[in-house]
Nucleic acid binder design. Structure first.
Lengths: 221, 221
DNA sequence: GCATTTTTTAACGTATACATTAAATCATAC
DNA sequence: GTATGATTTAATGTATACGTTAAAAAATGC
């Protein structure tokens, strides 16, 4: 089956993948022409993708220097986590206010179950995957589309850091208890508890990640 | 003196202005060719501007229909205010943590003074202008560049609603007291107070605006 | 008349061409 | 050998050309 998306869209996702995978390392420059050739298309869709990625904070366009892949410092990561913390906590509160049925919360429950299982099997990748699903669904349940967009852009950037820290950080056991408690609060329609627990959860993750990044001197991820 | 910016940048700001001024009304469609002609340039820079504005949530690109100017419903406005509330409050807290000197807070103080004066003279436009400056500076002092970007995009959208509600809503007298209290908390290095007061301030503004919009049935601003 | 198919149209997505101009290279003076 | 200025290079920003294809219009059948 053929890809029905436009080249512009393809370029956007492919460049994004190349940034996350490290094929385009942070701080590196890339001429539009080179990228166009690599992706097998003309400069036009590549340029359009570049503009989109710039709006998401992933790259900068420097005339005659090419696309600069934005590095992400420990301070950047702290800033990003701050935003995530506030917005996800709000989403948790709003989700609790919405009085979803248990059925509505099935995806959330599944993600928590998968995290538990992954932990038991020491499968950190599976855990990270389920953790992503949990947070994405949580935000979706918050019912604020703009907020979801912003959070997903921010989470994209976190993913870069996580790839490098996933295996050196402590096992996320506390994390799982937090998720369960947030789920519980949402199911019971308790916005304040949902908010506060998730807030503390994210703040904790932030401090852990930032201190890891600083310790390992990732001064431009 | 000539404008040194690229046509692409010019198109971005001009289209944005046209959206805010109502020259491109919410919900309306505009072909790339028409816009290009109106702006006196080719389709290329207009398209680039369109992509930037899409990333900011102002327009949508609908193949063969043209640029759709996104309408902003009361629900949208509530969502936007929710985001503003959380992020600005965080900025206020962080600003208080930063222990700025009184000199550093001069811009903030000036804005408050201007608001007081504008209120005394019943000059609502001047008040709105100073209010903008206050919030922008507050966020800047928070020291999170990404947060500032997001807030400024959200505030852009609020501006549309304010233009239509500024003269029908109650006079913002309470507002001024809030600003002063937030300023005080930041100057004294009290993050919690700064956060909580600003949070309440924004929540109040949100509820007032949303109920106004609903009452006046602006179901697509 | 209305529904369905065919034809036409034109807007977009993309490729390409090109002028501008910043950067790099080279030449020259000291 | 270094600094200054002239020359070359090449990447961008923009215009333009064009094929594709969705929508509109026209034609056809019932």
């Amino acid at each position: 089956m053929q890809d029905t998306r436009s080249n512009s869209e393809r370029a956007t996702t492919e460049l994004r993948e190349m940034i996350f995978s490290g094929a385009l390392p942070p701080g590196s420059d890339h001429l539009e022409t080179e990228l166009a050739e690599k992706l097998g298309m003309s400069r036009t869709p590549v340029r359009e993708a570049a503009l989109t990625l710039r709006a998401q904070g992933l790259v900068e366009l420097r005339p005659r220097r090419g696309l600069r892949i934005n590095p992400v410092s420990a301070k950047d990561m702290a800033d990003i986590y701050d935003i995530l913390t506030e917005l996800e906590s709000l989403a948790a509160a709003r989700a609790a206010e919405a009085r979803y049925s248990r059925a509505d919360l099935a995806t959330l429950a599944t993600a928590i179950g998968d995290m538990t299982e992954a932990l038991a099997q020491d499968d950190l990748r599976a855990w990270a995957n389920a953790d992503d699903r949990f947070h994405r669904e949580l935000v979706r349940l918050g019912g604020n589309a703009r907020l979801s967009m912003i959070v997903s852009v921010m989470r994209d950037q976190v993913r870069r850091a996580r790839a490098t820290t996933l295996f050196i950080r402590p096992k996320p056991t506390q994390s799982n208890d937090d998720h369960r408690a947030v789920y519980q609060a949402i199911a019971e329609g308790d916005p304040k508890t949902a908010h506060d627990i998730h807030h503390a959860h994210r703040l904790h993750a932030r401090d852990m990640l930032v201190s890891l990044l600083e310790k390992h001197q990732f001064h431009g991820l």
